[in-house]
Design a protein around this nucleic acid. Sequence first.
DNA 1: TCGATGACTATAG
DNA 2: CCTATAGCCATCG
Length: 109
Amino acid sequence: MTQQHFAEQVIQIVSLIPYGRVTTYGAIAKCIGTGASARLVGYVLGHSLQGKMEVPAHRVVNASGLLTGKHAFETPQTMQQRLEAEGVAVVNDKVQHFSALFWNPATAL
DNA sequence: TCGATGACTATAG
DNA sequence: CCTATAGCCATCG
């Protein structure tokens, strides 16, 4: 873990996502400062889920609102199931009204 | 150090 | 809407 600071930032920002809102990997990456390394955000999140941390990773989707990371959960349907439980409609692995539910970490901070 | 991998993104056709 | 390409960077063997 050379860049543990990076992982720490990712976990913190994801933990700040409000109930019923979602954000994107790129927004988080940009907020941290890593810039274009949106992939690392998902990478760290996946490892965080395997760990004992409680991170609402289901609120993080790609730039199109697709649940690209659902396979990292216990079951491929867990992510969508949790989103719908928070009032976020998901159809065909895509978040509905994504632009309205989008939460910008840069604005929150 | 190198090459492969991945929960990405933007652009082009 | 779909496929193809290129850029991105921490992590792993």
